[in-house]
Computed example of a mutant assay.
Amino acid sequence: MTSSPTHSPPPPPDNGPRMSREDFDSLFDSVRTWGTWSPADRGAWNRVTPAHVQRATALVRSGVTVPMALPWNTVPGPDNGKPALHYMSDLGDVEAPEPSCHKDFIAVDYHGKGVSHLDALSHIAYRGQLYDGRTAREVVDAAGAHFGAVSELGPLVTKGVLIDMPAVLGTDWLEPGTAVHAEDVLAAEKALGVTIAEGDAVLLRSGHFRRRAELGAWNPDNASAGFHVDAVPLLAERGISLLGGDGDSDVRPSPVDGLHSPVHALALTAMGVPLLDNLDLEALSAACATEGRYEFLLIVAPLNVPGGTGSPVNPVAVL
Rank of each mutant, 00 (worst) to 15 (best):
L203K: 05
P306W: 02
V305N: 05
H111L: 11
L242D: 04
A301I: 11
R61Q: 13
A84Y: 01
R238Q: 14
R210E: 09
H181K: 11
V185I: 14
R47V: 03
V161N: 11
P50D: 08
S241I: 08
F24H: 07
Y126Q: 06
R32Y: 00
Y126H: 15
T33E: 09
Y126V: 12
E282R: 13
T158P: 02
G310E: 00
A167G: 15
P11D: 04
S224M: 12
A69Y: 02
I240H: 01
R252P: 04
A187G: 11
G272E: 11
P233V: 04
P76K: 06
N15M: 07
T290W: 02
L130H: 01
V316G: 08
L275S: 03
L276T: 04
T36D: 05
W37Q: 01
G272I: 05
K82D: 14
L118H: 00
G245N: 13
D277F: 15
P76N: 07
R205G: 04
D200H: 14
G81I: 11
L275M: 10
P220N: 03
P71H: 03
S4D: 05
G81W: 01
D164C: 04
S30R: 07
E152F: 00
R205I: 07
E295D: 14
L59G: 03
E189A: 02
V115A: 09
L281R: 13
A96M: 10
E214S: 13
T6K: 05
D164G: 00
V194T: 07
H102W: 09
L243K: 11
V251E: 07
S285H: 03
L153W: 03
A136Q: 10
L275H: 02
H181C: 07
L303G: 14
V256H: 11
G63L: 04
R210S: 10
A317C: 15
R238N: 07
A40C: 07
P166K: 13
V305E: 02
H260L: 12
G193C: 07
L259V: 15
V140R: 02
P67S: 03
M271C: 05
E95H: 12
T171S: 13
P220K: 02
H260T: 15
T178N: 00
L59W: 05
G35I: 07
V300W: 08
G35W: 02
N73K: 14
M88E: 09
V229K: 11
L204F: 02
P13R: 01
G207S: 04
T171K: 13
V300K: 10
H86A: 13
V313R: 04
G199Q: 09
G199L: 05
L91R: 14
E175S: 10
L121Y: 08
N80A: 12
A317K: 00
D248H: 09
P13Y: 03
P97C: 12
